[in-house]
Design a binder for these strands. Sequence first.
DNA 1: ACTATATTTAACCATATGGTTAAATATAGT
DNA 2: ACTATATTTAACCATATGGTTAAATATAGT
Lengths: 120, 120
Amino acid sequence: MVKYSDANLDAVFAALADPTRRAILARLSSGEARVTELAQPFAMSLPAITKHLGVLERAGLISREKDGRLRRCHLDAGPLREACSWIEHYRQFWETRLDALSQYLEENESKEESDGNSTG
Amino acid sequence: MVKYSDANLDAVFAALADPTRRAILARLSSGEARVTELAQPFAMSLPAITKHLGVLERAGLISREKDGRLRRCHLDAGPLREACSWIEHYRQFWETRLDALSQYLEENESKEESDGNSTG
DNA sequence: ACTATATTTAACCATATGGTTAAATATAGT
DNA sequence: ACTATATTTAACCATATGGTTAAATATAGT
């Protein structure tokens, strides 16, 4: 029953393709924050953050609410639903280990814990 | 227990941000295909497709196997796992309807079917 | 060897992206 | 009104992206 547009997916995935923006979303997942608060952890100018917020807002992932001279930003996770459902479609392909890479990663993850094998 | 690099997520999400590339992945999910086969549905030159395949390959989402003068491409869904798990992290935010947008969309979806309310 | 087919590479172009600094805007506090 | 603070806008820059056409490369088929 999905009726979202492809264009929306474009914007959402593009927004997620930047580590600064993912970090901003992560931050907002623990509650709303003002722009300066969001900017604080980054070695980047405020205008750069404003731009990132613009990208996130256009993707529908956050909204900004004016509150006096500051703007409170909060997470709008809605669009992540369609992104998730797009990716989920491929779940079988990494879960059933149809691809070698996934298998390789699996093995390495286990090795990290146990490491009892002298395969090398 | 995720240990993937951020850079990898960047590449994966960026790769997914293009409708042509998502369509290519969709196509490959029903079995491997040659470059010309993949190119066929698109009103776009072959070199453009080659570039898209390059982006997908660099993101680890496909691999190309040389087979005579043609190249068989196949899906490597592995990297989608981390992308999925990143997004899944936010699942609560759209499922518990903490955000107004998600709620709004929900309502509109139901309204499409029932439409018995005269709330306006 | 020659020709056709499959694909990539090179060179180019327009636009988008991610950053900067300086200036503008809006509100809060006096 | 003046000053400080929060944020955005404008102008700019370098690089990335997504496309093009023309040429190169590799293999298949004769």
